[in-house]
């Protein structure tokens, strides 16, 4: 039973990470590319870390919860880097598929 749960978590994690990177390679402008890695990849790594936590907790050496720390850290930092990247792209006026926002100086 436990092995099935572990397998599911590992497979889901790897699949989401792969889909995130696929989005990075496949989509057509920078702003849409930003979505794949920030969301799918974060959840993918989250799944993988939970799998690791479950695996090491069941090897008899007591609970293993320090993976939670990496998950928490990623969930806090991923949006911040995404926000900064979007800000940098807007600053450089990268071309985008969506009509870019009106650029009044009060918005920078």
């Amino acid at each position: 039973m436990l092995e099935y749960l572990l397998s599911f978590l590992i497979l889901a994690g790897a699949l989401f990470t792969f889909i995130g990177s696929l989005g990075l390679a496949r989509l057509r402008d920078f702003y849409t590319r930003l979505h794949g890695p920030t969301k799918a990849t974060t959840l993918g790594v989250g799944c993988m870390l939970i799998a690791s936590s479950v695996y090491f907790s069941n090897r008899g050496a007591g609970m293993s919860l320090h993976e939670v720390l990496v998950t928490l850290f990623l969930f806090i930092t991923a949006p911040i880097s995404a926000h900064l990247l979007a800000k940098a792209a807007l600053h450089l006026k990268l071309e985008s598929l969506a009509p870019p926002p009106d650029d009044d100086p009060a918005n920078s």
Binding site: Y31, L34, H35, T38, K39, T42, F75, I76, A78, P79, I80, A82, H83, A86, K87, L90, A106, N107, S108
Partner: peptide
């Protein structure tokens, strides 16, 4: 802003100065 980045297909890009 963080919540928006993590949830349905949206990324927060810029906060206006005011």
């Amino acid at each position: 802003a963080n919540t928006i980045c993590l949830t349905p297909g949206t990324v927060s890009a810029r906060l206006s100065l005011d």
